[in-house]
Amino acid sequence: MSDRFHNEVVFAGFGGQGLLTAGKLLAQAGMAEGLQVAWVPSYGPEMRGGTASCTVVLDSVIVGSPIVPSPMNAVVMNLPSMKKFAPEIKPGGVLVINSSLIEERSDRTDILQVPINCNDIAIEVMGNSRSANMAALGAIVGATDMISYESIETALRNLFAKKPKLVEPNVEILKRGYEIGRAAREKAAQEG
């Protein structure tokens, strides 16, 4: 079982920040890589408090529990989500923080925190913050290396297949997010 791959990401933020879509893209990319995937919308008591979230579970054998109270990684797009999920991430996990909207950082030292100004990147590229979710998605893929960049970009291109004008700008946002995530991962690796 040592070869078994398993990973989990929670995407959390306000409704309308595109987190369910970001999660879906990750699931699609994972599926394209031959992984078993599950995408679970937030449910139960989690739904309260103005945060919308979804959990994506990737596994090379079978997705067991789709319910992941302590995820390995999280993407948080607003402060309430940060407060909720930062304490719950498993040690060694990644926390992608949308620094455009969240000034705080977690005081945890056993996780890799990746602040990224998602809204600013999206505004720079497209003139509005609608695609901030893509920057965050790129960052979590880059910081965890759980799937290849090519897979996530393909998933994104498929999503916008019917809206060709939106493809390239979104890919650019995704890529910039990915680079920031990857840089953080490599830096952390160097520092040991």
Binding site: K24, A27, M31, Q36, V37, A38, W39, V40, P41, Y43, V63, P66, I67
Partner: peptide
């Protein structure tokens, strides 16, 4: 159950 119908999988 409610989860099976609401979740996504391949």
């Amino acid at each position: 159950d409610g989860l099976v119908v609401q979740m996504m999988e391949s």
